[in-house]
């Protein structure tokens, strides 16, 4: 990763909301931002992948602007900014790539030049100090925007190496869509904030974000209910693939499953 923004400010000691990929789910993002406001968030971060999966990607941008959300570029955002032909999600299986192509083509068609230019200004990561700890926020991993950090597929040794190389005490990431955190020997913490735009493959339609309460370095994962039925109807109106709509309604992932490690796959239905 090349462009890392370093932040300073007293508000970083306050409550911090960390939101993963919105994937064009503007209704869920709105509900998540509202929840963070109610908790008194001093600062809100979005860890990238604004588009993909959901309908009408343009609806995401004003929500981020209105709440002064500090946003990091995900692979989707980088691809759109650079007008690449592929989302760069990092899938390796043809079945995963099939659906990834459909959602990227839709998002690409509905992204304006102005939006692409703004995506091109986003940093790859954000650093700050909070409570004496060095935080690094990124999309996939500190070293690769599209690297998947799955809970059951990352050894302690590997995460410690990433943290050491990144000179961080806390790594915050998304990209997988599943939230988890681990406190490692020596006090390093890794927080995957999950996704604000897609349910967590648990049969429940709500989405999740991570909350760092004032004075706490341990994340609380916050479930967010929203009008998923209205989102499903909007996706149908936009003729997005039926399996995507099924995920919004039922909370189980139906596509891009082959990348999942055994344990995470076993927890789902498909």
């Amino acid at each position: 990763m090349t462009r890392i923004a370093t932040l300073q400010g007293d508000e970083l000691e306050g409550g911090i909301a960390l939101l993963g990929g919105p994937y064009s789910n503007h209704r869920a993002l709105r509900a998540g931002l509202e929840d963070a406001r109610r908790r008194g968030a001093a600062r809100i971060f979005c860890l990238g992948d604004l588009g993909g999966f959901g309908p009408n990607p343009g609806a995401i941008y004003p929500l981020l602007a209105a709440r002064d959300v500090t946003t990091i570029a995900g692979n989707y955002d980088r691809s759109l900014a650079e007008r690449l032909h592929d989302c760069g999600c990092g899938y390796t299986h043809p079945d995963d790539n099939h659906y990834a192509r459909l959602s990227y083509a839709y998002t690409d068609r509905h992204t304006t030049d102005e939006q692409r230019a703004w995506l091109g200004t986003l940093p790859d990561g954000v650093r700050f100090e909070r409570g004496g700890r060095r935080y690094l926020l990124c999309h996939g991993s500190p070293r690769r925007t599209n690297e998947f950090l799955w809970e059951s597929a990352c050894s302690d040794a590997f995460l410690l190496r990433l943290a050491r190389d990144a000179e961080a005490d806390t790594i915050v990431c998304t990209h997988t869509g599943l939230h988890w955190q681990r406190l490692l020997p020596g006090g390093v913490r890794v927080i995957n904030v999950g996704s604000i735009g897609r349910p967590a493959n648990d049969g429940r339609p709500n989405v999740w974000y991570a909350w760092l309460a004032p004075g706490s370095e341990e994340a609380a994962f916050i479930p967010v209910d929203y009008d998923h039925e209205a989102m499903a109807a909007e996706m149908e109106a936009e003729r997005l693939p039926a399996p995507f709509v099924e995920t919004i309604r039922g909370g189980w992932w139906t596509t891009c499953l082959e990348i999942l490690p055994a344990r995470e796959r076993a927890r789902g239905r498909f």
Binding site: A153, C154, S155, A157, L160, L162, R164
Partner: peptide, 9 residues
């Protein structure tokens, strides 16, 4: 040795 080198899997 792999663990000391930060092996992932």
């Amino acid at each position: 040795e792999a663990e000391s080198l930060g092996v992932r899997d």
